[in-house]
Design a protein around this nucleic acid. Structure first.
Lengths: 225, 225
DNA sequence: TTGAATTTGTAACAATTGATACAGTTTACC
DNA sequence: GGTAAACTGTATCAATTGTTACAAATTCAA
């Protein structure tokens, strides 16, 4: 028996009334598969033909490298769907091998039935589109951020974005350590560059209060990067 | 009058019979807007409420920086759609300001009507999902690649991927210059690291023939990065 | 084959960042 | 208020990459 309440917490069915979900699922084919701890749900590179939603338990995504060792990538817990961005598109294969961490129930629906489901219910359709799109937006923002090479550029971009329209000062809510991690650099390197930028009278950072002294030059840093 | 043939070349309507497209469009609301050269189609940050498909002419996407200057990002020509990954999701705003390069005709359909369209025709639905997904997959591959910090790691990853299952040698079809651009590094730096890796007996590159001497160690490079 | 254009290998030096260490400051909690 | 923990500023040295320059090797077309 499916736990409809749980299914409705999943991004795909969110906002659909519980009895509506029940009615929808009567009109399409789907399966609920049970796995034991340690079972392999999918192998990296395998064609994806079904949407999987974890109903209970958790799974992990692992990559297998060229020499055969496995590296854990991420954990996925109920009630999240698997690989929504890889169901469609030109390269619809599992990017990772998926293994169960414990007893797991998985809701499984084929692509064609999922398409039917989306055509039957516009909320499900919109949910799915929102889900893929949000992920794309998140990744492309991250990519944009990575495109700045030097630490100075990263700081300039981060602060200009944080500042927005504010003319003068604003508060930071992260520590240098956290920023360093966000930027993917070491903490002393970040501190050093911040010092430089203060000496160059580009910014002032006093505790957590940031003041941008020269937005013009901060922008030029991004242009010439 | 709409050029249905052109519309059918667009990723959204691809694979739909021309008369089927005609029939579909009779069932939904849409507009064809005409713009003159230099007109602004959309402003960065503006909410996206319509899918735009360029029917004729071309537009450019520009970002306006914090000081007011504009930087061109890309050109989009007929019959491509605009910002398909930004129509949905949490941040459904134009990432760029869109300006026409010449006389332009744009097919415009609201989100709600687009949803209806996708529910009426499963090919359109699948096309749209494929389109967003492919983009996500492309970007996330790029992101993965950028996650390797040193040039050595990038080379190792690139060559291992190119090699695939082949045990010994294979041919490269790019020049060092092209690889350097792909990696986002300078050509002499790339050449230097390749020399080092040959001295360390990890690889041999003779003209365009690559031989991986120690896949094991190449993999370890990626792990400890 | 020859000659020009492209590609490659390499060197010397500058710039940037990482690694490590340590002392001074701030914050949080008792 | 006091103490421990976390955070910050800074210094030194090593590693990596960028910049610039030049010569050798290769490719391609005439």
């Amino acid at each position: 028996m499916i736990n409809y309440q749980l299914l409705n917490e999943c991004p795909v069915f969110k906002g659909v009334a519980e009895n509506e979900t029940r009615k929808l699922l009567q009109q399409v084919h789907y399966q609920v598969k049970k796995f034991s701890k340690g079972d392999i749900v999918a192998i990296a590179g395998e064609q994806i033909s079904n949407l999987f939603i974890i109903l209970s338990g958790s799974v992990r995504g692992e990559m297998i490298d060229y020499s055969g060792k496995t590296i854990k990538i991420e954990d996925i817990e109920a009630p999240r769907p698997l690989a929504t961005a890889f169901l469609f598109g030109s390269e619809n294969r599992f990017p990772v091998t998926v293994t169960t961490n414990n007893s797991v129930e998985i809701f499984s629906i084929s692509i064609s039935e999922l398409l039917r489901l989306m055509q039957l219910n516009s909320v499900v359709l919109k949910n799915y589109l929102d889900s893929i799109s949000s992920r794309t937006q998140f990744i492309s923002q991250k990519l944009h951020f990575l495109s700045f090479k030097t630490i100075k550029e990263k700081i300039a971009h981060y602060l200009l974005q944080k500042a927005g329209d504010r003319l003068h000062s604003f508060q930071l809510n992260s520590t240098q350590q956290q920023l360093a991690e966000l930027f993917g650099v070491t903490r002393p390197s970040l501190a050093r560059v911040i010092s430089e930028m203060q000496r160059e009278k580009l910014i002032i950072i006093d505790k957590k209060t940031v003041t941008l002294l020269n937005k013009q030059k901060l922008n030029e840093l991004l242009r010439n990067g």
